[in-house]
Design a protein around this nucleic acid. Structure first.
Lengths: 323, 323
DNA sequence: CTGAAAGCGCTTACAG
DNA sequence: CTGAAAGCGCTTACAG
C-alpha cells in the first residue's frame, strides 16, 4: 500500500517510483515508468495525503467556513469558490458552523486536523469570533469573507452594507414608501450590525426593525404573518437575505396583500432566488465573483488588505409595477 | 513553529512537550507542563495536521461529496452529518461536485489531498461514477449515500424509491387524480432512474414525465409554466425534490390554478421547505437521521452492507384540502 | 537516468 | 517521570 511496495513490485527504488507518479522529471526510462504504473494498478496504490502534504508543506485545498449553507447566499459563495478553485486544480472543502459560536470555535480549533493551505471564514459573531480566528491564523492564511469579527487580525473582503442599505431605502422612498419594515436575522453578525445601523440612520418615525431566528424561508413566512397581523403598519419590507424575502413575498400574497401595490419588497443578496417568485424580487446584487477574486488574491498574493465591494441595485416587480 | 521549538523554549524534550499537548499520559511534572503550555502560547504554536495524521494514521474528519448543496435535501444531509460528527468530536468537510461527472471525478481523484478517514459520496451518475468511486476506495472507507453507481464496490445507504413512489401515486389516486405529471431532474442519478421506472410501472395512459435541468426552485417555476401552457393536462404533480415542488406550487398558484382543487402537488424529500408554502406540501419524508446513523455505522464498524430505508408519507394541504 | 539518504513534524514504545 | 530514537510515507537535492 505504500510507495515502497510499489517500488518493490516494479523493481525500482522509491525515488524512481515517486518520480514517475509525480509526473515531474520527465527523464525516467519509459520501461521503468511502465513497470511502476503497472505495479500501481495491481496494488491499487494511491499516494498518502498526509505524507505528501508533510513533505511538500502544501496542499491544494482551501477551507470555507460558513455559518449555514441553507442560506442561498452562502450556497452561491460555495459554488463560486468551488468552481474557481476547481478550475485552478485546487479544491474547496466547506465546513458549516450552524450559526453558533460554539460550533465555530470547535471547527476552527480543529483546523489542525484538516489539510488546507488557507481558511476563508464567515465569522458567526461580530465580536466573539475573533479569538478562534486569531487562533487559526497561527497555522493558516486566513481571510474573513462577507462578515468580520472585531479584533480578528485577518484581512477581509466584504460588502459596503451601509451603501447598500442606502440604495434600498432611497429606492423605496422614491416610490413613496414611508413605513419600511427591516426584517433581519443573526443580529450578532457584523453584516446585520452594519445594516441595522445604516437603516436606523436613514429611518423615519414610521420605519421599524424586526429580528428573526435564522436566514430561511420559514423566517420569512413567520415575519409575514406578523406583518399581516397588524396590516397597514408597513408599506415596504427590506430583508437582509433574499431567502427570507422569498418567504415574505409568497406569504404576504397568500395573506391577500398585493405586491408591490400595497407592500413593496426588496432584499440583500440577489441570488438566483430573485427569479423564482412572481413578481421578481428587487434586490441588491452582491458581486460574488469580485468577492471570490479578491479573497483568493489575498490568499495567493499574501497581501493582507481589507477589501470592500459595492452592491448593485437590481429593480424588479416586487417594488415597481411591471419591472 | 514546530514542537521542537516549543520544547526548546520550555527547556524540555519534544517527547515531553508532545505528552503535555496531547493531554494523554497524565504523568508529567506539573511545572514542566506549565512551561510547555507557556511556550506554546508565546510561540503561537499549533500542531501540524499532516504530521499528526501521518503519525496517527487517522484524522477525525469525514468527507461528504454531494452533487449540489443548493438542493435543500443535501443541505439537510450536510447539517445532519455535521451535527452528528461534531457531537462525537469529529468534523465533516463537504465537497460539491456541481452535478457534473467531470468535477466529481476530479474531486474524488484528489481525495488523496484531503485529510479524511472516510468518504460519503452521493454519486452523480448511476453508471459513470463507479470508476472514480472504486478509485477512492483504494485509500478510504467509502459509503454511497442516497444514490448508487452500478459497478461501484462501496456499500450504500439509500431510500426505497419504488416504495416511496408507490405511496405517492396511490395517495393521489385515492384522491381521484388520473393525470399525474412527474417532474424530475438529474435523470442520470440512480434515484431518478429508480423513481421514473417505478412511476412508469404505476402510470396510466394520462400520466406523464417531465425532465428539468436541475433540482432548484427555478426548475419548478419553469415546469409550472409548461404545465400552465397546456392547462388541464395534469390534475396532479409529483416532484422528485421538494425544492422543485415549492417552485411549482407558487408558480401554478400565480398562474391562477387552485391547489389542491385543480392540481394536487406532492414531492420527495420532505425537508423543512414543506412548511413555507401555503398550503403545506405533501411529501415523502426521508429518514435523514436513519441514513446518517446507518452510514456512520458502516464507516465506524467496517461492515459493508447495503441499507435501504423507508420514506414516510406526510399529507399536507397541497393534496388534500385542509390537511 | 537511478538510488541511498535526509528530512517534513509528530507520537510512542523503549530504556533509564 | 523524562528523553533518545524510530518511524509514519513521501519527495528531492545529492552523488554517482
Amino acid at each position: 500500500m505504500s510507495l515502497k511496495h510499489v517500488a518493490a513490485v516494479a523493481g525500482v527504488s522509491p525515488s524512481t517510483a515517486s518520480r514517475v507518479l509525480a509526473g515531474v522529471d520527465r527523464n525516467v526510462d519509459p520501461e521503468l515508468a511502465r513497470r511502476v504504473r503497472l505495479a500501481c494498478d495491481e496494488l491499487g496504490y494511491r499516494v498518502n495525503a498526509a505524507a505528501r502534504a508533510l513533505r511538500l508543506q502544501s496542499t491544494g485545498s482551501v477551507a470555507l467556513v460558513v455559518p449555514a449553507i441553507a442560506n442561498a447566499y452562502f450556497c452561491e459563495l460555495v459554488a463560486a469558490y468551488s468552481h474557481r478553485l476547481d478550475a485552478g486544480g485546487r479544491r474547496l472543502v466547506t465546513i458549516d458552523t450552524n450559526e453558533t459560536l460554539a460550533s465555530e470555535t470547535r471547527q476552527l480549533g480543529a483546523m489542525d486536523r484538516v489539510l488546507v493551505d488557507a481558511v476563508l471564514v464567515v465569522p458567526v459573531d461580530h465580536r466573539e469570533s475573533a479569538a478562534a480566528i486569531n487562533d487559526v491564523m497561527r497555522n493558516h492564511t486566513v481571510v474573513q469573507v462577507d462578515r468580520v469579527a472585531a479584533g480578528a487580525g485577518a484581512p477581509s473582503v466584504r460588502l459596503d452594507n451601509a451603501a447598500g442599505m442606502k440604495l434600498l431605502v432611497e429606492h423605496l422612498r422614491e416610490h413613496g414608501r414611508r413605513r419600511i419594515a427591516l426584517i433581519d436575522a443573526q443580529e450578532r453578525s457584523s453584516s446585520s450590525v452594519e445594516r441595522v445601523e445604516a437603516f436606523r440612520a436613514l429611518a423615519g418615525p414610521h420605519d421599524s426593525v424586526m429580528q428573526m431566528a435564522s436566514f430561511s424561508m420559514s423566517s420569512g413566512t413567520e415575519a409575514a404573518s406578523r406583518l399581516l397581523a397588524d396590516r397597514g403598519t408597513a408599506d415596504a419590507v427590506i430583508c437582509t437575505a433574499d431567502v427570507v424575502a422569498i418567504g415574505v413575498l409568497t406569504a404576504l400574497q397568500h395573506g391577500g396583500l398585493r405586491v408591490p401595490a400595497e407592500v413593496a419588497i426588496a432584499s440583500f443578496d440577489g441570488t438566483s432566488l430573485t427569479d423564482v417568485a412572481t413578481p421578481g424580487l428587487t434586490s441588491l446584487r452582491s458581486p460574488v465573483d469580485a468577492i471570490v477574486t479578491a479573497s483568493l488574491e489575498i490568499i495567493d498574493g499574501g497581501t493582507a488588505c481589507d477589501v470592500v465591494v459595492d452592491p448593485a441595485l437590481v429593480v424588479r416587480g416586487s417594488t415597481v409595477v411591471g419591472s
